[in-house]
Computed example of a mutant assay.
Amino acid sequence: MATNPNKALWEKGDFTRLAANMRGSGEALVATLGITPGLRVLDLGCGDGTTALPAARLGADVLGVDIASNLVAAGNARAAAEGLGNLRFEEGDAADLAGLADASFDLVVSIFGAMFAPRPYDVAAEMVRVTRPGGRIVMGNWIPGDPTLVAQVLRISAGYTPPPPEGFVSPVTWGSEAEVTARFVAAGVPADRIMFEKTTYVFDFPGPPVDFVAVFRDYYGPTMNAFAAAGDRIGDLQAELEALFTAQNRATEPDRTLTHATFLKVDVRR
């Protein structure tokens, strides 16, 4: 079986270093989902548990699935450290959840996770398949062309990276309402059960913007690939990112970077 290129992408860096600056928004988002004790939750593309741990703390029975073995290990370590016996992490591919039974979850969550998986129509079909009738799917997806931080990091990075292979579908197409609707309708969900809301994620980093750029450069797969491919344009890439992070910083303290990133919240009623 061919190796999923996303596995190499997300194992190349260490997303836990970036996720550490996203915990507050993860908890705030989970708090809006109406999670109750015993609810069966799948967190798809879960990373090291930015949303899975808050869901488990509320009493849900949570399975986190991620393509990257290092993030699965980090998530299991975090769950063990908190004594969360109702949370476990395992490796898996969002486009092929073969090990998971039909209709086995009340809620499927994927925040900036499944959007990066290849074959988006397969991803939508799998999320629908494993959600029970009457259940719910919630996604958070970065928006193409959005002026806020992460969409711009992805745009800038793409400008320094070789063209993608033929047939590649950009992850940020998951931030298009029309694209998302088409994918879930193809998976059997009526269009009137697919709802959208633009909302905000906050990154709160304990250092100046130039240091936060370094976290993306050293640990975030897409940015790492851009630096590896930039060649003699590496200084331009660094300068472009530093200008972006400085412009988007809302913090008033010199040793803090506070940035807001707009995303599309997708809410599908099964």
Score class of each variant (00 low, 15 high):
1 M>F: 11
1 M>A: 13
9 L>V: 09
13 G>M: 09
29 L>I: 02
30 V>C: 02
35 I>Q: 02
35 I>W: 02
36 T>V: 15
42 L>C: 10
42 L>I: 09
43 D>A: 13
46 C>K: 12
46 C>L: 11
51 T>E: 07
57 R>D: 07
59 G>A: 10
62 V>R: 07
63 L>A: 07
69 S>I: 06
70 N>C: 07
71 L>C: 04
74 A>W: 02
77 A>F: 00
84 L>T: 04
89 F>Y: 13
90 E>P: 00
100 L>S: 01
100 L>C: 01
107 L>E: 03
108 V>E: 07
110 S>I: 08
110 S>T: 07
119 R>L: 08
119 R>P: 00
122 D>L: 15
123 V>K: 06
124 A>L: 03
129 R>P: 05
129 R>G: 08
134 G>A: 08
135 G>H: 05
136 R>K: 12
137 I>D: 05
143 I>H: 01
158 A>I: 01
176 S>R: 15
180 V>F: 06
183 R>A: 05
186 A>E: 06
194 I>F: 06
199 T>H: 08
201 Y>R: 08
204 D>R: 10
205 F>H: 06
205 F>L: 02
206 P>C: 09
209 P>Y: 14
212 F>T: 00
218 D>W: 02
219 Y>V: 00
225 N>C: 00
228 A>D: 14
228 A>Y: 01
232 D>T: 14
232 D>A: 12
234 I>C: 01
236 D>L: 06
244 L>F: 12
245 F>Y: 07
253 E>F: 08
263 F>T: 05
263 F>L: 14
265 K>Y: 01
268 V>S: 09
270 R>F: 00
